[in-house]
Design a protein around this nucleic acid. Structure first.
Lengths: 223, 223
DNA sequence: GGTGTATTCTATAGGCTTATAGAAACGAAA
DNA sequence: TTTCGTTTCTATAAGCCTATAGAATACACC
């Protein structure tokens, strides 16, 4: 402990992050069960068995990647919920923050979304609880907006929350492959879409284009 | 060929469908690469090797299930697009039809959504083209609505189409586990959400509740 | 140069899975 | 009862993958 000063404190942490990043990349590309530890090792330029110096099992690597991918979502969402601003701004902020990790950590997010179900029961359930709490935060922001009259009264907040989260998570699948779709465009379009469908048209919906936009009146019900 | 009359015509087709259904169930539950042919055989109550009387390879089974899961989407969407009604009704119909297969064929749909990427290149690309054509139909319905002034002018139709499809596909993940969410509620809520976010408020938005709903004016840009 | 820790290596056991070969069982029709 | 096509069975080869054991290397510090 005393003398391995200059090397141990920094490098190991960085190396561990590199291992996780390699695992995330491979799991995201090929799917957990289709990915081999050999694949991960190749990304790192080391031998397959050398990986086991860092991870106890392949499953543990998946768990680490998933935790990493989930990290922060809850916290940031809760901060937005508690923070200042009306419900419309909060919803737009939730969307932005939900999509933001795709910029730098898309692999982690994708593995979290698509592969966490292959975790052993214990950790899968733990992570599942996080996800459900996150859903509830979005739902509550919507409920709060409806309660305050900012959003429409009869709004089905549960479905709306699931829709919002669902469209964002779907974006994780095509982000980067869809041409001409930077995050700003995605979150802007999603916010506008949701807000004008959800809000009763407060002063500040998350509209990016089309400002001078006199609306006609929606007056009839469908069917 | 001449004398196997009474038995061959019916049973084999049904049996083949049972095989596919078993494969779909197992692939949906465990994921393609985690599922074994043994698992499928167990569902059917036969031996693992007996499966190979029906399928040439496990991969072929996946392809059959995916094709089955994708079946009809394109056709029905195209019919809606060409059919009568305004864009709002068409969009609502697209959502309904997109979600409807979850009622009886959820396993197939889920496998199509989550496991098709593990198909060999050729068939994966073929199926991918279908999916993209489907996206384009949704997008065109939106464009048409915007062109005719039924939807808002500056509407980002591409993002809106991806959002709509994304929220529906996300629903495939939680449908059946989410309590109190029959398909009617889902498609109704999604339609209302999208339409009021998308339309410029023509006579008939897909509103189920809240009709008298005078909107205030959205006038400011976000940020 | 010697020492000790961290990191990577070679070699391989052991388990699981797909797919094939060939035999058996089952029925319907002759 | 025999025949014949269909369906399922037993047995197993062959390949792939995870994880372990133990040796070798690198490198900082004395």
């Amino acid at each position: 402990m005393p003398r391995r000063a200059a090397r141990v404190p920094v490098a190991p942490k960085r190396r561990a992050a590199e291992i996780r990043a390699a695992a995330a990349k491979v799991f995201a590309e090929r799917g957990y069960h289709n990915a081999t530890t050999q694949d991960i090792a190749e990304v790192l330029g080391i031998r397959q068995a050398s990986l086991y110096y860092y991870i106890p099992t392949k499953e543990a690597a998946l768990e680490a990647v998933c935790l990493d991918g989930a990290e922060g979502y809850m916290t940031r969402a809760a901060a937005i919920q508690r923070g200042p601003g009306d419900a419309a701004h909060k919803l737009a902020a939730l969307l932005r923050e939900h999509l933001e990790p795709l910029r730098d950590r898309a692999d982690f997010v994708r593995v979290f979304l698509r592969e966490r179900r292959h975790l052993p029961d214990a950790s899968r359930r733990r992570i599942g609880r996080h996800a459900r709490r996150y859903e509830r935060i979005v739902e509550q922001v919507l409920k709060e907006g409806a309660r305050r009259g900012e959003f429409r009264r009869g709004l089905d907040c549960r479905m709306a929350a699931l829709a919002a989260i669902g469209m964002c998570n779907a974006a994780a699948a095509w982000y980067g492959r869809e041409p001409e779709a930077p995050l700003e465009r995605i979150s802007g379009a999603f916010a506008q879409l949701l807000l004008e469908g959800v809000s009763r048209a407060q002063p500040k919906p998350a509209a990016r284009r089309n400002r001078a936009n006199p609306r006609r009146r929606p007056d009839h019900a469908e069917r």
